[in-house]
Write a protein that binds this DNA or RNA. Structure first.
Length: 207
DNA sequence: CGCATTTGACCTGCGC
DNA sequence: GCGCAGGTCAAATGCG
C-alpha cells in the first residue's frame, strides 16, 4: 500500500518508457494447444504483468526475456473459444541463444517442451493482427524442407538434438490442425517456429 | 540469498 | 473531453 504511494511519485519515469510501446517490432503469433500458459520455447522468460482482456475471459500474461540485453517480449493468452489453445505472440527478436533448453534447466521439463513444440502451429500475423504481409518461407509448402534445414545445427545441439528430433518426428497432430486452419506447416516446421529465437531472422529480419 | 512471480496502480492511445 | 482497454512498472512475496 505504502509502496503504491511511493510508486506514484516515480511514475513519470514510466511515462517516458511508454514511448517504446508503439515501437513497431516484428510480431509472431503462435497457436499452441496446451494446458499450460507458460510454454517452453528455449528461452527464459520473466513474467512482468498480467491483464484481463476484453475479448477473452482468460487473462493475458506478459513475459520478457530474462536476458537484459534482449528486448524480446511475449504475450500469452488463451483462446476464448478453445481454452486449451494458447496464443503466444512474440515481439522483437532475440540477440542470444536459447538458455533454458539446457539439461537441468530449472524451467525445462524436457518432455513437456517437446510436446508443446510439436503442437505449435504458426499463424500468419496477418490473420491475427492484420499486419502487412511478412516474407515467410514457411508459407511455401515446397520450402518446408528448406525451413527445416534452416534450423541452426548448433540449435539442435543446444537442445539435445537427438532427443528433440526424435520427438518432432512423430505423427502430425490432427488436433492442432483442427485447432485452426492456419496450421499449414508440418510438425517439423512448427517445432522450428517454436524455437523461433534465431528463426525469426532469416526471412523476416530484413523484412 | 537470488530469482521469478504476483499484484495493484499508472500511463498512453484510441474510440465515441 | 471522457472513458475504456491495453500495456508496463516496481514493490512485495514466495520458492529453490
Amino acid at each position: 500500500m505504502l509502496a503504491s504511494e511511493q510508486f506514484r511519485s516515480m511514475k513519470p519515469t514510466a511515462a517516458v518508457k511508454k514511448g517504446q510501446k508503439r515501437a513497431r517490432q516484428q510480431r509472431f503469433a503462435f497457436v499452441t494447444k496446451s494446458e499450460v500458459d507458460h510454454l517452453e520455447d528455449g528461452y527464459r522468460w520473466r513474467k512482468y504483468g498480467q491483464k484481463a482482456v476484453k475479448n477473452s475471459p482468460f487473462p493475458r500474461s506478459y513475459y520478457r526475456c530474462t536476458n537484459s540485453k534482449c528486448t524480446v517480449k511475449k504475450r500469452v493468452e488463451r483462446s476464448s473459444e478453445d481454452p486449451s489453445v494458447v496464443i503466444t505472440t512474440y515481439e522483437g527478436q532475440h540477440c542470444h541463444h536459447q538458455t533454458s533448453f539446457q539439461r537441468g534447466g530449472m524451467h525445462f521439463h524436457g518432455g513437456a517442451t517437446v510436446a508443446l513444440a510439436e503442437q505449435m502451429s504458426f499463424v500468419s500475423t496477418q490473420q491475427l493482427y492484420n499486419l502487412p504481409p511478412l516474407r515467410r518461407q514457411q508459407m511455401n509448402p515446397a520450402s518446408s524442407e528448406s525451413v527445416v534445414s534452416s534450423v541452426p545445427p548448433s540449435l539442435q545441439q543446444l537442445n539435445g538434438g537427438d532427443e528433440l528430433r526424435r520427438s518432432t518426428s512423430y505423427s502430425p497432430m490432427p488436433s492442432a490442425a483442427q485447432t485452426s486452419s492456419s496450421s499449414l506447416v508440418p510438425p517439423d516446421v512448427s517445432f522450428d517456429m517454436g524455437l523461433l529465437g534465431d528463426i525469426v531472422p532469416p526471412g523476416v529480419r530484413n523484412g
